[in-house]
């Protein structure tokens, strides 16, 4: 195990999480990993795959991203953000629904888009980009329904019981939407190198990743005003994930994918959120070491 891997492992242990990470320099391909090919549950990180598939279908002329969709208030029972939290009938364009899906992880917006794009198209997109271990097997509503079913009659409060956690099929990569850290940095690299679509579509996808509002995970590791962080989180009971790209003003850009599982079943665990940033920073610092050494002339 290298020193960097050891630092990352220690950071995860210190935050009481099990973690899997892959980070790479988008331009040189240099990489850092801690079990980067381990199957992981994507949860809302899969919204990134959906976003890319949405843009690919739009590029093929299947629909126009400015097309308006009507969102009736019925059936919005699963969300604390975006359309999922709104009370009245709404009307948004496909691309604005994508904005809500990416910026605040809006599950209603995500399933509306998934209805248009189709699960098969999402999987075709990831396969075609070479993500051999990435697969979506259900919609976001179906995913939350498995949790509701496994949690049983006590509902939300049962999620802090370790017995419930051992029962959740949503936490088993073999039975839910899944990927690997390395697959996710490959996807991000494709997006940043305009290999997932035309430059226009690439720019639109990158813009949305940069509009995510959460500051507590990946971004927390880079408290620098001149560094740009774009990403998408994913969360389920005991799971905290984020994949994203960190860009420095000297042109260095790094794709990072961090997936964690906490020992504690509590829903509020600031240290488990923050370690995603800490681990990403250790990885990015290691990738930047040749560059920073060169600049300081040593």
């Amino acid at each position: 195990m290298t020193r960097t891997q050891d630092h990352i492992r220690t950071a995860f242990a210190d935050a009481a999480v099990t973690g899997w990470l892959h980070a790479c320099d988008i331009d040189t391909g240099a990489e850092v990993g801690l079990h980067p090919d381990h199957p992981v549950v994507t949860a809302s990180v899969h919204k990134l795959c959906l976003l890319v598939a949405l843009h690919q279908r739009a590029e093929q002329g299947d629909f126009d991203l400015t097309e308006q969709i009507e969102v009736p208030p019925t059936g919005r029972t699963f969300g604390l953000t975006g359309l999922g939290a709104m009370l009245d009938p709404a009307r948004v364009s496909l691309r604005d629904a994508a904005y809500l899906m990416m910026s605040v992880s809006d599950n209603i917006a995500a399933d509306l888009l998934l209805e248009r794009v189709g699960l098969d198209a999402v999987n075709r997109t990831t396969t075609q980009l070479g993500l051999a271990h990435t697969l979506a097997v259900h919609t976001f509503r179906q995913l939350l329904d498995t949790i509701k079913k496994d949690a049983g009659p006590s509902g939300t409060r049962a999620l802090s019981d370790p017995h419930t956690i051992t029962r959740l099929t949503a936490l088993d990569p073999a039975r839910t939407n899944r990927s690997t850290p390395r697959d996710m940095t490959r996807l991000l690299s494709c997006i940043w190198r305009d290999e997932a679509g035309t430059p226009d579509h690439g720019a639109a996808i990158r813009r949305l990743l940069g509009l995510q509002v959460w500051p507590h995970r990946l971004a927390s590791g880079f408290p620098f005003d001149d560094v740009h962080v774009a990403g998408k989180t994913g969360s389920l009971p005991t799971l905290r994930n984020e994949v994203g790209v960190v860009e420095y003003p000297d042109g260095g850009r790094y794709a990072v994918a961090v997936f964690t599982r906490a020992a504690n079943t509590a829903a509020t665990l600031p240290a488990a959120d923050a370690v995603i940033g800490t681990a990403a920073r250790i990885a990015v610092d290691a990738l930047r070491a040749p560059r920073t050494r060169r600049r300081s002339g040593t």
Partner: peptide
């Protein structure tokens, strides 16, 4: 089990 208030960053809801 005590009450559990999920915050919006939780990303899931039952």
């Amino acid at each position: 089990l005590p009450p559990l208030h999920l915050r919006p960053t939780a990303e899931y809801w039952l």
